[in-house]
Design a protein around this nucleic acid. Structure first.
Length: 357
DNA sequence: AGAAGTTAGCGAGACTGTTG
DNA sequence: CAACAGTCTCGCTAACTTCT
């Protein structure tokens, strides 16, 4: 079971974890988990509509169902009134966190620079969800099913601005006491690994102890305690999280202060990453082109909030054109020739990416 | 009946103080 | 300052009730 599941986490998120804390308070851990969860789902639900149950969420993030099902203390103590959508109160821990992600943005403390094709965009905030529904009128023995729509920012981040991170490690590392800090450390290290592997052939780097402690929530005064804590966390990542890293403490600039030398034993498979990148990029942009050409369809009301996404998931519209885009993406990225009938079936079934799994 | 939501108790392990 | 050890807290488990 030493499977590595490579996901992509948006750089705007990974670079600003502290801002999630600032914007979401004690819900920050859940928000971060949700983004990781959704990044994993995005590999198969590319177009931003995702449907999931509490069980699935727990399975993939390693959280406990019981903790998420509890009515949030703010509401059970009567201090606040839970928000409602269509008369349904979003009052459990998970419900409320999802609601918060729709209602609130991540506010960046400093504007975050994103380099586009020929411009630099400054992001000051980052929305996560655009829409949130669930099967409000449940009958007997029916599970809660969450229906969500992701923000455009999250989807474009998935395509063009991401770090590779192993979501299986993320899940394993999050279990047990101190999990939230370990997860943050894992994101930070994955980011370093990603940058290192994609810009050079080096696999080693040295980081001052204080900087890494900031990311790992280690606030001890005594250097020896910092070292002890960090050592424990890194060992945990290595042994329990199966994160392929080698570390050693070294003295820093001749002073008595510590630094950490890190060696990443294996980076993400570069070929595979590159192929996937091409595939997703081709697919989504190809679909956009087709949509712009002929997508508005017969008598589609223009008041629709998100015509592109609606067009995409609408099975009756432009099936042949969609199938062609899919074929091209498979061919260019993986050299796979999808027969016409298979491509059409995939488009009709909605499982565009099934052959990848 | 099965899923949602609650509660108690236990054990790992994070924190902190002591020692050499 | 490193190594060790005791304490106490957090988070998991499992068994329960309530809800639809």
């Amino acid at each position: 079971m030493d499977q590595h599941i490579l996901s992509r986490i948006d750089r705007a998120v990974a670079d600003n974890l502290k801002d999630i804390e600032r914007s979401f308070g004690e819900q920050a851990g859940l928000v971060q988990d949700f983004i990781m969860f959704i990044s994993r789902q995005l590999k198969t639900d590319l177009f931003g509509y995702t449907r999931f149950t509490v069980q699935q969420f727990c399975e993939h993030t390693g959280r406990n169902r019981q903790d998420l099902a509890l009515v949030h203390p703010d509401f059970s103590s009567g201090r606040k009134q839970p928000p409602e959508i269509q008369g349904y109160a979003f009052q459990t821990v998970l419900d409320y966190a999802l609601y918060a992600m729709m209602e609130r943005n991540i506010i960046f403390s400093r504007s975050y620079e994103v380099k586009g094709h020929n411009s630099v965009v400054h992001m000051t905030h980052f929305p996560i969800l655009k829409d949130l529904k669930l099967n409000f009128n449940r009958k007997d023995k029916q599970q809660k099913i969450y229906d969500i729509r992701l923000s455009d920012e999250l989807i474009s981040g998935f395509l063009s601005r991401y770090y590779i991170i192993d979501s299986e490690s993320y899940k394993l590392v999050g279990k047990g006491r101190g999990g939230d800090s370990r997860k943050k450390l894992l994101i930070y290290l994955s980011k370093i690994s990603h940058v290192l592997h994609s810009t050079s052939t080096a696999t080693e780097t040295t980081i001052p102890l204080d900087r890494i402690c900031r990311f790992a929530d280690i606030n001890d005064i005594k250097p020896s305690h910092k070292k002890q804590n960090l050592q424990r966390m890194l060992t945990h990542l290595k042994c329990i999280g199966r994160f392929p890293i080698h570390f050693e403490f070294v003295s820093y600039r001749g002073s008595s202060e510590y630094a950490l030398r890190l060696a990443f034993l294996s980076g993400p498979d570069r070929m595979k990453v590159q192929k996937e990148h091409t595939f997703y990029y081709r697919l989504l942009n190809g679909m956009r082109d087709v949509f712009n050409l002929c997508g508005t369809g017969p008598a589609t009301p223009s008041i629709e909030e998100d015509p592109f996404q609606n067009w995409l998931i609408n099975r009756g519209l432009n099936t042949a054109e969609k199938a062609r885009v899919l074929q091209q993406a498979y061919y260019i990225a993986f050299s796979i020739n999808l027969p016409d009938s298979v491509a059409t079936d995939l488009v009709l079934s909605g499982d565009f990416l099934k052959p990848l799994i």
